[in-house]
Every structure is written in structure tokens, then in C-alpha cells.
Design a protein around this nucleic acid. Structure first.
Length: 900
DNA sequence: GACCTGCTGCGGCCTG
């Protein structure tokens, strides 16, 4: 009688196991934990799953086998007959495997994939999924008895851990698998997963832990973070990634290609042509509104594609998204315009072609998206970057070189987020209660809290017990109480329920449902967008032109509309900066161009533009820091290009403005993008003299950090971070399902806690955490330090400009947006572009020089006229930066320093 | 609360 045998199972399907699959089986048979790194669709799920079946069904015997066997032992492990009674389900084996995925849809897909070998290899095992999608029927069945294999999410697992019988039920688990670990490890969901794994390991010391991850720059850290410090594991490298092509869709005429912008609609004809030529195509965009606009533009260009192309992003209703995913799987859809929503999940898409509109932002992200194509055997993956402005041409070549060199971003891991720990303490108190010393030991066995101090631990305990120092008078925050035996529990049923409803670490902005009157739900728009619409107004959403009928109880009721020029919803999403890896690769390309080596098609396409940049100023390189100064009627513009990503540029800009303002009181406005930033002062500023002084390194990292905090409106920024922390820590209740509370209500309550703590409990660790998160996540402090240090090594090249260069122009455009409606900006930019193009024409180089002798030159005058219409006079100070989710960026002169 | 270009992801109540 044959038991589970992975090799046989694969052989029956004509599959030969890969070497990495055998490695996983051997390791699992020995009871080892590990991390499997493999590309999507390479068979990693089966590797782990078949290995698990083999290893777990008769563990005792297998252990003996493994002990007796040499390293080269066969992995064809045979165990005794496994009671193949198909009707045995109600008596199925108890919970043995917990399989965690980051997405509900992926949980469902995974369950389907796992079930197939299950019926054959372990008929006495049952399998089921538990997530927010699970119906109440399944739920109550699971409450009586969990399946042998439970496929779930980190949040649902935490909810299970909060049940009073958690130890009995979950303590039986012998294997935890975390799929897509790279998606979780870098955020608080990953920390929550670490804590859950530690809990399970506490319940069963022999627990095996396996992770699966896509390509990362720091796999060792990924493994260490999952398994816990000081725990050995196996790192299995999956099948070598298939061949990958990174190329760029070049515009037909690069001399007419926009210098700034993000939409890229000018590339529409070429994109249509690519889709026409290819099989199924995924068109990735960087934002949801961009996806909406591109979908519409494609339909306008090809009305016959109605029904053949679709739209997919995170604010569309699940029903809509599932329909699109099904269309992709069946091959019915020719193209789907999407955002990161299709980065993960949806197994085995038959996608042939992947287009990336706009900057890919990072190499890991590019690889992930590229991996969506070329699933057919022998076919390479291919991703084509569609540049939206001239400098993005260079990103294509840069990305290709970085991929070839194997430069991939590392993923940073959160350290000791106390809000997550506080939540976990209440969860465990609910799940049967805890004794503090034992739990501390368990918590310290995770990578995130290995260094947790006794003081922090004591603070967290006090916080769940009486809300810390400030909230002692409020029974709602006496969540955990110590019983007569010294066990910490949650006795109050109402608080228990409230906690279970609040489990998780994802915090999103309040949104409003969009629904047809008497019909289907379409998705979600942000409350703030809906608030600006009046009944009768039109907007573009879910690929349709809609008219708002009314807003009622957090739902925007709509009907189809025609004609009218619509608004496009904007979502206040995250803003990923260009990664260090990709930014460095871009600088390398500029270096090549500076040497006259235009070896790639992209560089050749950008050659004229780069020539203009060199002619009017210079090209930034690894060893040269480019600074440009332009005097206009607005004042003095400084453009600086550290290539450190938008977050760092904001911090650096603020820092430099702060340092200058200490010498001479001035008001600056700041504009940033991923390549550099602009500082504009209304008065004359002598940057040639000032810049070398204010660029200096700080005395210490600590001092630099303080300067950056001082230079920003740090209090307000930290308060916004605190909002999320308050929700994760369970201070702010988000309401019952279906009873959405408006963002105003939530805002008000988190603000109240912020103020109460500041006043009555300034030592509150959550306040400190908000500041730390602000520094680490929003200001990218570590990267800022590196960038500043590097700038100090570089040779400063300061060029005085006659007109904005190709590098400076996008920064100026960035600033215009805040003053005018889009249309006005478009018109004004069109005029500026026309002027600049004239000046940039071949023969114009001489003209440009001539004009420097006659500043009244025609072109010069017109550019100035354009700038003048922008009205950044002294009376209308530019106050706010766009796209930063930051408060006012105005630099108030600090109080004069006391004499030394 | 502030954003206007700005991703993704989760969970939960009540009653019989």
C-alpha cells in the first residue's frame, strides 16, 4: 500500500520534480523549517504542499527515516495506508497545517490547488479556507471543528487566536506555511504574522515553519524574520528565473516628447498598436485615476474594443474585479488596464504582454510585474516600459541594466511597533489568557521584538490594563484584567467583541460606496472626492461616465450619464519614491551619456534632450552634484538633483531651507520629484556662497534627525501617523460593519487621544512611535543620511541658468499645479513647452548663447511672459506643495539666534 | 484633515 509520495504524484502527471522541490521535501522530512525562494508559477506551492503531506502524515516514522538516511536519501517516502475512506470527512484529522496568504482571493485559489493532491494522497484530511469571505455556515462548522488544512490570512488567524479555545484547536498545528512572505515581511501585517507564529510555536515547540518569497535583495533577512532569531532553517533557491526582457516603447519623435507629466497619453497610438499586435496584455499604471483615464482613452481610440478590454484597481467593487479576473483567466479579455491590484494573486494568468506606463519605481516591482507574462513554456517574460516624459526614457535602460546586474531592492522590516504588540496582548488575553513572563519570552522570540526592553514591555502591559497614565478613568480602556490566578484575561464581553472587530493592521481612509440607483455596486471613492460633487455632476469611475444622483448614508448613488466633461476621482494613496537601486541605475545611465556612450535605444532616444541639458547646464553623475540657479520675477530658484527619491528630497529641501533661514530670514517654497527638488525664494539668494555651507553633514545622525524634525511641521505630520497607530492599538473604534463612520468622526477621536496624551501622558510610547514612523517611513531618514553624506563627497557643479533645463522644468511644472485648474496648467505648460522647444532646436544653441548677450531676446521674453502669467508675486506666496500629504511647507524664519 | 497624480492588503456585530 502506498501512502503519500510526491514523486509518484508528479510522475502520474508527467511532471519531473525540480531539484528545488526535492530539496524542500528532504528538509521537511527532517522536520526542518525554511524559506523557499522561487518565481511565480514555478511550482513552489506544490513543492511545499507535497512535502508537507509526505512529512506530516506519519511523522514518527519519517523522523526515523530521516535520521537513518544519508543526505542523498531518496525523498520517495512511503507511509502506510492512510484510511482512504471518502466519507470519513467528519472524522477527518485535526488541524495540522495552517497556510497563510496575504489575500482572500489567493486563499481561495490556494485551497483549490491544495485540494487536488489531497483527495489522492490524504483522503482522511480535510481542507478549508477561513477569511472574511467565509460564509457564516462554514464559519460555524469551523467553530465546531477546524479542517486539517486551514488556508487563511494573518488577520483571520489572529481572530482565531483570540478565541477562548485557541490553545486546544490551534495548538495542534504542526506546520505553518506563509505564502508571498515578501509582501508581508515589510509591514505590520508581517509583524502580526511573526507574533502569531510565535504563539503557535509556543503551543507546539516542534512546529515547522515555511515561507515562500519572490525575489528580494535580502532573502537572508526574510528568512530570519520569519523563523525568528537564532533559529536555523533551510534557504531553498527555486528554479532560476526565466529569461526576462526589459524594453521601452519609444515615442516616434523624441524632440516632441514632453519633458514633464505623468499620464503618458501621448503614447496612446503606440500602446494601441502593441495591444493590437499581442495576445492578452496587462497595462500597468501607477495610480487608479491614471488607470481610469487610460482605459477611457483606449476605448475612445478603439470603440470596437468595448467588452474586450477592462479595468482593474483596488477601489472597484469585488464583483467587478472578479469578473475581470475571470475574463483574464479564460482569455476572453484582450487587455486589462490595472494598478498593483494585479501584482499578486490570480494564479496562472494567460498573459502574453506586460506594459508598464510610467516609472516602474523599483526593480523588485518591475520583476513582479514582468513575471505576469510568458507563462507559456519556453517563452521569456517581457515587460515594456511606456515612458510618460522624457527622463523616463532613461529609466528603461537603467532598469534593464540593474536587472542584468542582479541589483534588487532589499525590504526593510519594522522594528518593535508597539501598537501591534498592544493589539496582540489583548488578542492573547482573549484567547485563553496569558502569564506575563511566559508571554514576554514568546514575544522576544520574534525578530521584531527580540530587543524589546523590560520597560517597553511593562508599558504595554499597563496600557492594556488601564490605558496607560492618562486613560485610567475610562473603563473602556481597562481591557485586560488579572484574575485570581495571575492570568491576564479580557472579562468584558463588549470589549472582547470590539477588539475582535478591530483586529488587523491595515488602516485606510474613509471612503464612500458608489452604487447605481437600484442596481450594482461599482466600488469606492474617497469621501473627500464625493463631498465636492453636487447632484447632477458627472465623473468617470469604473470605466463608466456617471452622474451623481444623491449621497445618502456613506453611499454615492449614481446613474449613467452622457456628454458632459467628467471629473476623475482621485484617491489619496501612498506615494512610492523611486527606489535607491533604480535611482542609482539612472545616474549610471547619465554617466554613460556624459561620456558620449549612448549605447541603448533609450539613451539614443534621449540624446537630444540630454544634449540640451548639457548645453544649458550639465549632467549630474555619480561624482558630481548638479545645482542650477535661475533668477526670475518669482525670485531665485535653486534646483538640486540628489536622485534620492521624493521623500528624501522633501526632507533635504526642508533641511536646506531651514539652515539658510537661520542665516537670513527668508520664505521658501519647495517642489520635489524623484530626481531632485526646487527651492524658490522670493528674494535674491546667493546660492553659490550659501550652498556649500548648508549642505554640510550634521554632527551626528541624531542631530540631523532633530534638524529635519525642526525644519518640518513635524508635530502635525506625526499626528497623522498617530491616527493609524491609535487604530491599530485599539484606541479608536471603527464602528460595526456596515455602519461606516465618517473620516471626520475617526479623525476627531484620534486627535483627541493625541492631545490628551501630549498633555497628560507625554511619555506615552505610542506618541514616540508616531515620530519614529514619521522619520523612518515618510522621511526615509536612513536614506536621507546616506544621500547627504554622498552629496558631501560629490563635487558641486553650480550652473546659473537662463531658462529652465529639461531637469528643472518638471519641478517648475510640479509647482504650477497647485495654483491652477488642470486646464489652465495645461495651456500654460503648452506655451512654455513651445518656447523651450524653440530654444532647444538644433540651431537654437547659438541663439541661446546670443540671447545671453541680449536678454531682451524674443524667446527669453516669451518664457518670462509665461512665467509672469503664473503670478507667484509676493502677495500670493506659494504655500503648499502638491502630492505630499503634508501641511504647509512655508518656511517661517526662525527667531534670531542669541549671540554666541 | 488635507489632498488634488499617488499602490496593495484585512477584519468584525446582532438574533434565533
Amino acid at each position: 500500500m502506498k501512502g503519500p509520495n510526491a514523486t509518484a504524484w508528479l510522475a502520474a502527471r508527467d511532471w519531473k520534480p525540480f531539484a528545488f522541490q526535492r530539496q524542500v521535501w528532504t528538509a521537511m522530512a527532517r522536520g526542518q523549517s525554511g524559506l523557499l525562494h522561487a518565481t511565480t508559477g514555478s511550482g513552489k506551492t506544490f513543492a511545499v504542499w507535497l512535502g508537507a503531506l509526505q512529512a506530516l502524515i506519519d511523522a514518527k516514522r519519517l523522523k526515523a527515516d530521516a535520521a537513518n538516511s544519508s543526505k542523498t536519501a531518496s525523498t520517495e517516502i512511503v507511509v502506510p495506508d492512510a484510511h482512504p475512506n471518502p466519507h470519513a470527512q467528519p472524522n477527518a484529522a485535526p488541524l495540522t497545517v495552517i497556510w497563510i496568504t496575504p489575500m482572500r482571493a489567493l486563499a481561495a485559489d490556494t485551497l483549490r490547488a491544495l485540494k487536488e493532491p489531497l483527495t489522492e494522497m490524504a483522503p482522511h484530511w480535510s481542507a478549508g479556507a477561513r477569511s472574511g469571505d467565509t460564509t457564516s455556515g462554514e464559519r460555524s462548522a469551523q467553530d465546531r471543528r477546524l479542517p486539517t488544512v486551514l488556508v487563511t490570512t494573518p488577520e483571520s488567524l489572529s481572530v482565531l487566536l483570540s478565541r477562548a479555545d485557541a490553545a486546544d484547536n490551534l495548538g495542534r498545528a504542526r506546520l505553518v506555511v506563509v505564502d508571498e512572505w515578501h509582501e508581508l515581511m515589510g509591514n505590520k501585517r508581517g509583524v502580526q504574522t511573526q507574533l502569531a507564529v510565535a504563539r503557535l510555536r509556543h503551543l507546539n515547540a516542534d512546529l515547522m515553519v515555511w515561507g515562500m518569497s519572490a525575489t528580494l535583495g535580502n532573502l537572508d533577512v526574510a528568512q530570519h524574520t520569519l523563523l525568528g532569531p537564532g533559529r536555523d532553517g533551510v534557504l531553498v533557491q527555486g528554479k532560476t528565473p526565466k529569461r526576462l526582457t526589459v524594453d521601452t516603447l519609444l515615442p516616434p519623435r523624441t524632440d516632441r516628447f514632453p519633458w514633464a507629466g505623468h499620464l503618458g497619453i501621448s503614447m496612446l497610438p503606440q500602446v494601441v498598436e502593441e495591444i493590437e499586435r499581442s495576445g492578452n496584455t496587462l497595462v500597468f499604471t501607477n495610480t487608479r485615476s491614471q488607470a481610469e483615464l487610460w482605459y477611457q482613452a483606449l476605448l475612445d481610440a478603439r470603440p470596437d474594443w468595448a467588452g474586450l478590454i477592462a479595468l482593474h484597481h483596488g477601489s472597484l467593487d469585488h464583483g467587478v474585479r472578479e469578473w475581470v479576473e475571470a475574463g483574464l483567466k479564460s482569455g476572453a479579455l484582450r487587455a486589462v488596464v490595472c494598478t498593483s491590484s494585479l501584482d499578486l494573486g490570480v494564479d496562472f494568468l494567460p498573459v502574453e504582454r506586460v506594459l508598464q506606463i510610467g516609472s516602474p519605481k523599483g526593480i523588485a516591482r518591475l520583476l513582479q510585474r514582468a513575471g505576469r507574462s510568458g507563462h507559456a513554456p519556453g517563452r521569456p517574460s517581457r515587460i515594456t516600459i511606456v515612458p510618460t516624459h522624457a527622463l523616463e526614457l532613461i529609466e528603461g535602460a537603467a532598469a534593464r541594466d540593474a536587472v542584468a546586474a542582479g541589483h534588487i531592492e532589499a525590504r526593510e522590516v519594522p522594528q518593535q511597533p508597539l501598537d501591534v504588540l498592544v493589539q496582540h496582548l489583548v488578542t492573547v488575553a482573549l484567547g485563553g489568557g496569558f502569564m506575563p513572563e511566559a508571554l514576554l519570552h514568546e514575544v522576544r522570540s520574534t525578530a521584531a521584538y527580540a530587543q524589546l526592553s523590560d520597560a517597553d514591555w511593562a508599558w504595554c502591559l499597563a496600557f492594556v490594563r488601564q490605558g496607560g497614565e492618562a486613560l485610567g478613568a475610562y473603563p473602556d480602556f481597562h481591557r485586560v484584567q488579572v484574575d485570581a490566578n495571575g492570568v491576564w484575561r479580557v472579562p468584558d464581553a463588549r470589549l472582547a467583541r470590539r477588539h475582535r472587530m478591530n483586529i488587523g493592521t491595515i488602516v485606510s481612509d474613509a471612503s464612500m460606496a458608489v452604487q447605481f440607483v437600484g442596481g450594482a455596486r461599482l466600488g469606492q471613492v474617497e469621501e473627500s472626492f464625493a463631498a465636492r460633487l453636487k447632484p447632477g455632476d458627472c465623473f468617470l469611475f469604473a470605466g463608466r461616465l456617471l452622474e451623481l444622483v444623491r449621497v445618502h448614508e456613506m453611499t454615492a448613488w449614481v446613474r449613467r450619464a452622457q456628454g458632459q466633461r467628467p471629473a476623475v476621482p482621485r484617491w489619496n494613496g501612498g506615494k512610492m519614491p523611486l527606489s535607491t537601486t533604480l535611482a542609482d541605475a539612472v545616474v549610471d545611465q547619465l554617466e554613460l551619456a556624459a561620456d558620449g556612450r549612448h549605447s541603448s535605444p533609450e539613451l539614443r532616444a534621449a540624446k537630444d534632450l540630454l544634449a540640451v541639458q548639457s548645453e544649458w547646464s550639465a549632467l549630474p553623475t555619480r561624482h558630481h552634484l548638479l545645482a542650477e540657479v535661475l533668477h526670475s520675477r518669482e525670485g531665485t530658484h535653486l534646483f538640486l538633483y540628489p536622485f534620492a527619491g521624493r521623500h528624501v528630497h522633501l526632507g533635504l529641501g526642508g533641511l536646506i531651507a531651514w539652515r539658510v533661514a537661520r542665516h537670513s530670514p527668508t520664505t521658501f517654497s519647495i517642489a520635489v520629484n524623484d530626481y531632485g527638488f526646487e527651492l524658490l525664494s522670493p528674494t535674491h539668494t546667493d546660492w553659490a556662497e550659501l550652498l556649500p555651507q548648508v549642505l554640510r553633514n550634521a554632527e551626528s545622525d541624531k542631530a540631523l534627525q532633530q534638524e529635519v524634525l525642526d525644519s518640518l511641521n513635524a508635530g502635525e505630520l506625526a499626528q497623522r501617523r498617530f491616527r493609524e497607530i491609535a487604530r491599530v492599538a485599539g484606541l479608536v473604534f471603527q464602528g460595526h460593519p456596515g455602519e461606516q463612520r465618517s473620516s471626520r468622526q475617526l479623525q476627531a477621536s484620534s486627535r483627541l487621544f493625541w492631545e490628551v496624551f501630549r498633555q497628560y501622558d507625554p511619555g506615552n510610547r505610542l506618541l514616540h512611535q508616531a515620530e519614529q514612523e514619521l522619520l523612518a517611513l515618510e522621511l526615509d531618514m536612513a536614506r536621507l543620511q546616506t544621500a547627504l553624506a554622498r552629496m558631501n563627497q560629490q563635487t558641486l557643479m553650480l550652473h546659473t541658468l537662463e531658462r529652465p533645463t529639461p531637469f528643472a522644468f518638471p519641478l517648475m511644472v510640479e509647482r504650477f499645479r497647485e495654483k491652477f485648474s488642470n486646464e489652465n496648467v495645461a495651456q500654460r505648460i503648452a506655451r512654455m513647452v513651445a518656447q523651450l522647444e524653440k530654444a532647444a532646436d538644433g540651431p537654437s544653441r547659438r541663439k541661446a548663447r546670443d540671447k545671453s548677450q541680449s536678454p531682451e531676446g524674443e524667446d527669453e521674453g516669451d518664457v518670462q511672459a509665461v512665467l509672469d502669467t503664473l503670478d507667484f508675486g509676493r502677495d500670493s506666496p506659494v504655500s503648499r506643495r502638491t502630492g505630499d500629504r503634508r501641511p504647509r511647507r512655508e518656511r517661517k524664519p526662525p527667531r534670531p539666534l542669541p549671540p554666541l
